[in-house]
Computed example of a mutant assay.
Amino acid sequence: MDEHISFNNILVPIDGSTSSEIAVELALHSAEEFSSCLEFVYVVDMTALNKFGTVDPSKEYYTMKIEGETILGYSAKLADKKGAKHKEILAEGVPWEILCELSKSADMIIMSVSGKSGMMAGRIGGTAKKVIEGSYCPVLTVKSGSNKIEDILLPVYDENRPAIDVAIQTAKRVNGKITVLSVKEKDHDPQPLVDKIVEEIRKEGIEVTGEVAEGSPVEVIVGKSGMFDLIVVGVDRRGGLQSILHGGATERIVTMSSCPVTVVRNR
């Protein structure tokens, strides 16, 4: 297990939308659980300025900048009330590029999969998708308002160390339990792998169970998501779920799951 995994610095992109407020709530809860410093980020999307040519770009720019300062100030007040360490970043540029660059010095990003048209581009496939694909740290995506993280689902196909380590460290911090899940496929018996990972997690003093299911991996994971507070998904360099799922599998899990999903890229 990687003992150096920490959640000391959490990046929180915000845009004032209801969905980003949910991300802020979870980030504040996580800061309390992990003793983290929150970095609230608002990006003035320069590509969105005067997109339709109907507004003076300079006026639109200052409107967006003032909006960003206001939203950052509000988030800072919420953090102060919770006693959470925090700092605010007002940036300009292409949102996903800014966030991926900032992720180099972050331990995790907590963000909504939807938001205003400028910052988080409506649905995954815009900014959120590009951040998940390009981030240098795990990305925890949120849709609902629950802050509780106790039951963690860890889908596995191979030994994706980063995902396993993130699940272990998360469970340790929140005193949670982990379910290791693998899906049986033709000519592939995942039971030995599940047993091995379960034993490793149990040695860390974490309550853990293992399960082997049948069916489509994405459908199985999404179908079970309502029974968990968090899913930790390992993603390979090609963007598939570990080494078996491709063609937008991660995107479908993030958008269709009932609980937050942490995407951990194996670089």
Rank of each mutant, 00 (worst) to 15 (best):
M1D: 11
D2K: 15
I5A: 05
S6H: 12
N8K: 12
I10V: 13
L11I: 01
P13I: 10
G16M: 07
S17C: 07
V24S: 00
E25L: 07
A27D: 04
H29V: 00
S30R: 12
E32F: 08
C37N: 15
L38M: 07
V41C: 04
N50Y: 01
G53H: 00
P57D: 04
K59I: 08
K59N: 05
E60A: 13
I66L: 14
E69V: 02
T70W: 11
I71E: 12
S75Q: 03
L78R: 15
L78Q: 15
D80Q: 14
K85T: 00
H86S: 03
E92T: 10
G93Y: 04
P95I: 10
P95S: 11
E97V: 11
I98W: 01
L99K: 03
C100G: 03
I110W: 05
M111L: 12
S112K: 02
S114T: 06
A121G: 15
G122K: 15
T127A: 07
K130D: 12
S135W: 09
Y136D: 14
P138H: 10
L140E: 08
V142F: 04
S144F: 07
D151K: 15
L153T: 06
P155L: 08
E159Y: 12
N160H: 15
N160L: 11
N160E: 15
R161K: 06
A163S: 13
V166R: 05
A167T: 02
A167E: 05
T170N: 05
K172T: 00
K172Y: 01
G176Q: 12
V180D: 12
L181Q: 03
K184S: 01
P190H: 14
P190M: 13
Q191S: 14
L193R: 07
V194Q: 05
K196C: 00
V198H: 02
E199Y: 12
E200H: 09
E200I: 11
I201Q: 08
R202G: 00
R202Q: 09
K203Q: 07
K203C: 01
G205I: 06
I206N: 14
T209Q: 15
E214A: 05
S216T: 11
S216M: 08
P217N: 05
V218N: 06
E219F: 06
E219M: 08
K224Q: 09
S225C: 08
G234F: 03
V235T: 02
V235C: 01
R237I: 13
R238D: 08
G239F: 02
H246L: 15
G247N: 14
G248K: 09
E251Y: 09
V254P: 11
C259K: 04
